[in-house]
Simulated scan of single mutants.
Amino acid sequence: MRAMQATPSASNLPLVRRLEAVGFRAWPAASVIYDGSWQIRLAGGHPSKRLNCVVPLDPSDFRDMDLRLEKAGKRFQAYGRPLILRETPLAPTQLVEHLSEAGWKRFETVNVMTADLARLALPDTIDHLPTHDVSRFIDASLLVAGEDPALKPALAEVLNAIKPAKGLFTIENSAGGPVAVALCVQDNDLAGVMGLAVAASARGQGRGTEILSSALRWARISGARSAWIQVVADNLAALGLYRKFGFRQAYQYHYWREA
């Protein structure tokens, strides 16, 4: 059975390629190799799916699919990772059909959204300036997101490997505890907002709007003209926030794993 795929028109594929490229630079994997046009991304310490996946980047490159998937699987096994493939609109239709017929399953869909920063009504001043204390930002991020503190060294490795300019944003409550975090990476005229999270105890208080406003204002002052985000398709609260800021869907991607 042919898998359904939301595919932009050919005229939109250059945008997809550009957003994929800035996304790779904004969230760099420790190991990146190519098998033809398939990018194989792996990270020994951090379990992020974006850091540990195969990403086909040419719709015409579908030769020797079984052999190449088998070779990729051995690389993932060496890292102690399950083999995951990320299907963007650049993935060959033949490969997507092959995965479906071979029993692979889609297990997550992510929306990539963009906004024109020039059209956004943002405050004249930045309420929260980015911090330069990477260690403190990581501690806040792990606490707000409820993630394992043991991930700190791996997250530090990822953040320190980001080459474009980055803004690390945190909001604290009156007691000094973190309640919201966001990472903004400004790459020439594009800025990506990632890792935006609000503590469960602070939701519904406008903290998401507050920290996103600061990140986007910083990006615009720094020279970005457009912003992009990636958000899981069933995260309705985040989608509502981003749409309020003028973000609209550019494309979707999907994660696949063996059954």
Results as ranks from 00 to 15, higher is better:
S37H: 04
Q77P: 01
A161P: 06
D234W: 14
K105L: 10
I84C: 06
W27N: 04
L241M: 06
G177N: 12
N160E: 11
Q230G: 05
A121S: 10
A156Q: 09
L90T: 01
A191K: 06
A215G: 10
D66K: 07
R119K: 12
A118N: 07
L57Q: 03
L239K: 03
P28K: 15
Q249A: 08
R136A: 08
I33M: 11
S201W: 00
L122A: 07
K71W: 09
S135I: 06
R225Y: 14
A238Q: 09
T209K: 13
Y255I: 02
D127M: 13
G176M: 12
D127R: 13
E20S: 15
D187E: 14
A29Q: 02
R86M: 11
G36N: 11
V16S: 09
T170V: 13
A250F: 04
V22F: 08
L95E: 03
A200C: 09
E20Y: 07
I162K: 08
R225S: 14
M113G: 00
A6V: 08
Y34S: 14
A215I: 06
E258M: 12
A30E: 05
A102D: 02
F169M: 04
A6K: 07
S174F: 14
V112L: 13
G195C: 15
A140D: 11
L95F: 10
L13Y: 02
R220C: 12
T209I: 05
M1W: 14
L51M: 11
L168Y: 12
L19G: 01
S213H: 06
L196Q: 15
D189P: 15
S31Q: 14
K49I: 11
F76N: 02
G146E: 03
L143D: 13
R18Q: 14
I221G: 08
P92I: 04
A78H: 06
S201R: 01
I40D: 06
G246R: 02
P28C: 10
G195S: 12
L42G: 03
L143T: 06
P123W: 06
